[in-house]
Design a protein around this nucleic acid. Sequence first.
DNA 1: GGTCAGACTTACCGGTCAGTAAGTTCGCCG
DNA 2: CGGCGAACTTACTGACCGGTAAGTCTGACC
Lengths: 203, 203
Amino acid sequence: MVSAVSSPGSKSGESELRARIIDVATTLFAERGYAATSMRDVASGASCTKPALYYHFDNKEALFLEVIVATTNAVVDLLRGAMGAPGTVRERMQASMHAYFAHLRAHPRALKVMMQAEISTDVGQPTIDFKSMRQSHINLVMPLLREGVDRGEIRADVDLYDALHVIAGAMDARAIQFVLEDEPIPVDYPERILALIFGGLSP
Amino acid sequence: MVSAVSSPGSKSGESELRARIIDVATTLFAERGYAATSMRDVASGASCTKPALYYHFDNKEALFLEVIVATTNAVVDLLRGAMGAPGTVRERMQASMHAYFAHLRAHPRALKVMMQAEISTDVGQPTIDFKSMRQSHINLVMPLLREGVDRGEIRADVDLYDALHVIAGAMDARAIQFVLEDEPIPVDYPERILALIFGGLSP
DNA sequence: GGTCAGACTTACCGGTCAGTAAGTTCGCCG
DNA sequence: CGGCGAACTTACTGACCGGTAAGTCTGACC
């Protein structure tokens, strides 16, 4: 057993193998899901033995959680950055969408592993609270929408919660089509979808 | 081995146990996913032995496929019915959404098992083509949108594919929030969301 | 040069998995 | 009554699972 004070199980970074394990695990968990991914496969993919995995991570669940948290944080940081830029609310929404899609094009595993995490109820329930994680995403976008109302870019009578569902839904629907069917996302998709959502379908 | 001519493995309906197995399997696959659901658990849930499962279904994958197909067909039939009713395009969209949400409220497992099916890549790839299944859903909705343009309910310059993503995305985003977080869907949600999509966010 | 910890490997464990071979019960038909 | 097939059960197999005990190698420090 590894001593408590210098346990690498909870420390982050540093080791090259550790990073390789996380990379391989991200791919496998994204592709096959939690239950269908074996620690043996992760070890073989990372060109190490199984106990080497357990040297760096307490157990399978801990490895999975690390993968999820790293992936999710990357996306959240990305969105936060794009939203914080100057410009109108609509411009910042557009920038966020561009950043999101660019990230997905570079790392299609990201969305897949997050989808896997959301529907695998048996794992990480006490450690990661997905409900509050989604809530924090909402808390990220809602102030932007409220600012849109204050600035007169968005009608004052719309339910911002509904608006959020429309915007995020359109974004995710397209993203899912990309990662599941390899249907590429056009570069001008954010502009088009925002024009549609702001302008409406009615003539 | 069961003879080819009278194999119940591919026949549908009839047996009471068979129906019970499908019901239990639907719940377990929805809740835990394909890989994390064991045939033992299904058998115990259906109050029978494991070989009884294999009497009715060729293997685990065949059972899963039956669950998916049954679940998906139920939803498609539902939408087709609601869309075929008389009224304006927008009214028929609204009716479809109401029908969809009512179905989900009655069978939250349905969406969960369909989500599980979509991301479990190892199963049913040759037997069920999810890409063409999604395409058939699109073929279900697109004519309605086109009719909307013809009737003057929808602006002629909108990309109907984009419109579909916005509508379906908003619907699914809310549905997912319902099945994953038990956040109830307000009865007037279809009206509200369609008002938003048709009217647009801009003042 | 001895010790000692970090970073692993070899070899293994108990348990669970999907799937099966062979036997049993039961209702129906001749 | 005899047999025959549908609808199961009991008992089992080999593979694979997550996890571990115990040993090994290597470099740093004294």
